[in-house]
Computed example of a mutant assay.
Amino acid sequence: MESFASQSAFGPHFAALSNGSVTDKVTPDMAHLIHPYWNQFPAMDPIWAKILTFYMICIGFISWCGNGVVLYIFSTTKSLRTPANLLVINLAISDFGIMITNTPMMGINLYFETWVLGPMMCDIYAALGSAFGCSSIWSMTMIALDRYQVIVKGVAGRPMTIKLALMKIAFIWAMGSIWTLAPVFGWSRYVPEGNLTSCGIDYLERDWNPRSYLIFYTIFVYYIPLFLICHSYWFILAAVSAHEKAMREQAKKMNVKSLRSSEDAEKSAEGKLAKVALVTISLWFMAWTPYTVINNMGLFKFEGLTPLNTIWGACFAKSAACYNPIVYGISHPKYRLALKEKCPCCVFGKVEDASKASDAQSQATTNENESKA
């Protein structure tokens, strides 16, 4: 453990602590992984550990059930066994994996109010969280790119095949493996963070080794996927909006109210895609941006980082695992139809007939082909 002088140099509050430091319960085998910056903070109120435990149990239960149901429905429903849906299944596996592995370990450490599982389990916890999290992010990206190919490029786009889907899934897990194993082999490292009940990338060290890793990790696991998702949905919405406008103008020329007999009863493809795009991008920012900001603050500026806000940032990133089943599963009409058949208590609202059930991208593609005919 660092000397008192070394510890107090990281902040003016250390000398004034009256109820001990957040690092007081650190076990001897973990002491060498704790950055001296955390020594300045008092021990967190035990009520926060209970609140965090309750939160993790809630999102864990939702994620286990939601992603478990997605995997069950997609794997047992023949009409859903399409190449494109392999990406949705991969997303569900990633989200299920991060919660089934991280939630129990974090719960144990919250009970003891510090990391008690040792350095090896710290590496395993952080590595699994990074691998599944990266896979989830890139799965969302590949889903967006697939929708872009189908809706924007149409017949000119590359059709999704099982081989192509498997190649994309291989790429997704390759990305996850690269960024997960790098700290294990010496490019940065995994350390306890926040209130020291969770482990993640070391974003407080000033050496070029961990800082360079964090810079590249942020680029390839946050900024590039975010750009690709926004790019895809921007052009998807633009294409569908232009098609809807053309349909309305054609209907006006033909002196009819609409070219769709069911337009009054069903929402347009434009509206459905707008909602999916808005929800996807919004949840992306909500789940991953706080933790990215925390990492960047540690990279460039310490002030503002506390055990409480950093641990909440890590927990909030994991909440994406319970959002995704709703966005990519329940918004899928054929999935809702199968879910109503096999688990009717999980379905709310109107469910389309089998003859009308289709996802947003296939609906938009059909409409486009009809307009060209």
Rank of each mutant, 00 (worst) to 15 (best):
K253W: 04
L196Q: 08
T114P: 07
K153Q: 14
A373V: 03
I172A: 06
F302M: 10
W173C: 11
I108E: 02
I47Q: 15
N369C: 01
T197A: 07
K334Y: 01
M120G: 07
A144M: 00
L305P: 04
K78F: 12
E113F: 12
A269N: 10
N309F: 04
K267G: 13
I47L: 15
V69D: 01
G133I: 11
I124N: 02
S18A: 10
Y190P: 15
P12F: 01
P28N: 11
T82L: 14
L299K: 05
G194A: 05
L87E: 05
N19T: 13
P210Y: 00
A242S: 14
S282Q: 08
G157I: 10
F302K: 02
G157E: 08
V279N: 04
L283E: 05
Y111C: 12
I89N: 00
I93Y: 08
E244F: 08
Y37C: 08
F220W: 03
S8W: 12
D146F: 14
N19K: 13
F220V: 05
N295W: 08
P119R: 10
E341G: 00
I236M: 08
I59A: 01
L196K: 07
C343M: 15
V70S: 02
E352F: 03
P119T: 03
A287I: 08
C65P: 05
L91N: 10
M247H: 06
I100K: 05
Y223F: 13
I326M: 12
I98Y: 09
A265V: 03
L91W: 07
Y217T: 02
